[in-house]
């Protein structure tokens, strides 16, 4: 049975080695104890009310044995834990930095060339990466099981993760520090690309290809993909349930009442404005928590999302 996630970073094999080592130690100890427990219970079960039992109170040899052996095992496990942790915390000289900002309930990534992505981190394979992370609000934690890396993210100082991805692919990113309502929807993906693909992603030529493929699917379909990829789902339901933000179900063409008492019909322009400048027209009953998607979604993508909302009757 599979009990470890895919191993896709230089740190992962070390962690897995410890997990295997401690598992083997644990299984042997556990089987030994269970065996003795059952063996003694069967062999020494009470036969008569007057069974004679020896008054053994201690045994120096045995007690030394079961003090020394666990001590040695503990030291060994500690050393393994320390050695790999030490490697993980030292930043390689040629590491490429990516700035990470966590916010209820999304991840945003800023790259050195000015690119910015939401919930999707792009990194080249075999390249040491250093994430410089901070939070805009409460505590979060950055966790990629395939890389075996995790680090809390907070508001008052930067925290760091070093990793080097070893396999191309798309890996899950979880928030693992409880952060409120949509904690379990604060998900992302890490895209590990070949050096060539990463270069084309970086200079923007990959965007054109992506756009071309995006153009081939209906806008409402694309909007549906963006709904989950860009983190909208964390706050906006599509089934009418009240979330942190208003549900998208039946939203289009509905009359909206704002916190300042004004009102407007939710048409294309209103929705676009709300995506780009979410603080401008706050619907009554909701707080100013949504980040601006300016620069994170282009016009075609906004149109696609509007088309998707129109389908949610």
């Amino acid at each position: 049975m599979k009990w470890l996630p895919e191993s896709a970073s230089t740190f992962a094999p070390g962690v897995d080695l410890i997990l295997w080592l401690v598992t083997i130690i644990s299984v042997i100890s556990c089987v030994l104890i269970a065996f003795l427990l059952i063996y003694f219970v069967i062999k020494y079960r009470r036969k008569t009310e007057n069974d004679q039992t020896p008054a053994i109170t201690h045994d120096s040899f045995l007690e030394t044995l079961w003090t020394v052996i666990p001590t040695i095992l503990c030291i060994v496990i500690f050393i393994y834990g320390y050695v790999y942790y030490d490697q993980y915390t030292v930043t390689p000289k040629n590491a490429v930095e990516v700035n990470v900002t966590a916010k209820q309930w999304l991840w945003s990534f800023d790259y050195s060339n000015g690119k910015k992505t939401l919930n999707e981190l792009y990194v080249p394979v075999d390249q040491p990466i250093r994430l410089v992370m901070q939070s805009d609000d409460v505590l979060h934690s950055f966790f990629v099981p395939a890389f075996r890396v995790k680090q809390d993210v907070m508001g008052n100082r930067y925290t760091y993760i070093n990793f080097t991805a070893t396999k191309e692919g798309v890996y899950d990113l979880y928030c693992t520090e409880y952060c409120g309502t949509a904690h379990s929807d604060m998900l992302g993906k890490v895209h590990v690309l070949s050096k060539a693909k990463f270069a084309s992603w970086q200079d923007g030529s990959a965007d054109k290809v992506k756009k071309a493929s995006a153009a081939s699917i209906p806008p409402a379909e694309l909007g549906k993909q963006l709904y989950s990829n860009k983190g909208c789902l964390a706050c906006h339901s599509i089934d009418g349930a009240n979330g942190v933000g208003p549900s998208w179900k039946g939203l289009f063409a509905k009359n909206r009442v704002f916190t300042d008492g004004a009102s407007a019909i939710a048409d294309e322009n209103y929705i676009k404005e709300s995506i780009l400048y979410p603080g401008e027209k706050m619907v009554e009953g909701y707080g100013p928590v949504m980040p601006s998607y300016k620069g994170l979604l282009d016009d075609d993508e906004i149109t696609a999302i509007i088309e998707y909302i129109k389908t949610l009757k």
Partner: peptide, 16 residues
Amino acid sequence: LTGLFLGALAADVHLH
């Protein structure tokens, strides 16, 4: 015994 996993620094980074 499962506490031994969590006490090991590198393993705890994954399991925490």
